[in-house]
Write a protein that binds this DNA or RNA. Sequence first.
RNA 1: UCCCCGGUAGCUCAGCUGGUAGAGCAGGCGGCUGUUAACCGCCUUGUCGUAGGUUCAAGUCCUACCCGGGGAGCCA
Length: 461
Amino acid sequence: MDESIKQILARESAGGAVLIRGWLRTARHSKNVSFLEVTDGSGFAGLQAVASPDLAEYEETVRKLATGCAVEVEGELVESQGKGQKYEIHASRVELVGGVGDDYPLQKKRHSLEFLRTLGHLRSRSNTIGAVLRVRNATSRAIHDFFQQRDFLYLHSPIITLSDAEGAGEMFRVSTLDAKNPPRDEDGNVDFAQDFFGSEAHLTVSGQLEAEIAAHSHSKVYTFGPTFRSENSNTARHLAEFWMVEPEVAFCDLAGLAELAETFLKSVFRDVLEACPDDFAFFDQRISPGIVSNLETIIESDFVQLPYTEAISILEASGRDFEFPVRWGIDLQSEHERFLAEEHVKRPVVVTDYPAEIKAFYMYMNEDGKTVRALDVLVPGVGEIIGGSQREHRHDVLLQRIRDLGLPEDEYWWYLDLRRHGSVPHAGFGLGFERVVQFITGVANIRDISPFPRVPGNAAF
RNA sequence: UCCCCGGUAGCUCAGCUGGUAGAGCAGGCGGCUGUUAACCGCCUUGUCGUAGGUUCAAGUCCUACCCGGGGAGCCA
């Protein structure tokens, strides 16, 4: 394989022959010399190739090169005479591998992210999306590193599931039945017993329940995979297909989970900043000024922990005229979360111990009988990036809760059975991968974080 | 899904109380002694989102729909 441009730029010294292949970010021609800035995606910075009219192919090839052309350049790596880069290539050969039409839509100038979204096949060549993809990659690695270093098992939870485990959201149906003429039972309903899996199947909305199974054998596990919600959400923070990270830890309570969440986020932020300094310089300059120092502050300071009841008191005492009135028992609305994270503490805030009524059935009931051991991590700008809880591991308490809520007891038989055999206190959280990348890059819309975003009405690329 | 705003050249936008479309960038041609999202000169580019309607006349006013943005709900 060729040495990447990133590797070449990291060399200790100039000198020696180099060969690069990539795409032109810009081509600047003047009478006696042409400058070609070549990128191969390995890093934010491109490598400048300098071509003189002495080259045999100068008039025919070099002079005609423009933004977007695919090229191969051979030459010597030299110290740059100009400012702005350490090294450049003194070209001895420039080959046009693939030209561009004069309708090539990407310019050297800034494009709107909305326009780039219509060019899903080309936008990864732009500065912003290119940087996002590198940071996304680095974030993914940092997440695996964090868990692997701590002996967490990477569990591949299923993508196709039979039950809507926690009512987490609308689900996409998976079926091989003839949609136009499905088999019917005697009542006239679609007979899913004849479907591929012998019953109704959907794309997963969460790997949590499977992670709980694995936590009861391997103690510390995490999932990291695609998740699907068919809700008609049209916001800058929702995708119909997104990646979720779900650690699940046996012998862990809510306090242990809060500590894990904080350590985890800080570790990921630190690793990603270190892995992509050029990309962050770009985000800091062009996308979200101050993002780097903001992340550094978060890494160095403690998260604020706030029990729900206390959060309500703070909101009530704020004197704000919220659209949704504040009282104990309400679910926190966007405006409340924003106030807490962006104005009150100005950093990530961990809200804990929510009223049971507004949380899922599987969360551990506190001694007060009113609140459950749940936890949300709220960050400025994005809102909730982590939601988790200590799970109810007491069989009788869980069974009563399922019955109280009128949930289908038989569908949860194995989930309940897990509480009958070697049940232990355990806790876990879910983290929206794209939301984390959104937060650390400062990119406003989650559709620019996913390389191929799926949203209501659009899965074009 | 709801509320608000928008859709004009390849892109980013201007276009007043209705009178028949424009600037920068991109692109083409030429120039320039090493440039940095280079620079200088000249040139080209339009179903004004779609379909109806009002009017002597619609980019401009009205209606519906489509798409995009901001906010909300739901959530990660």
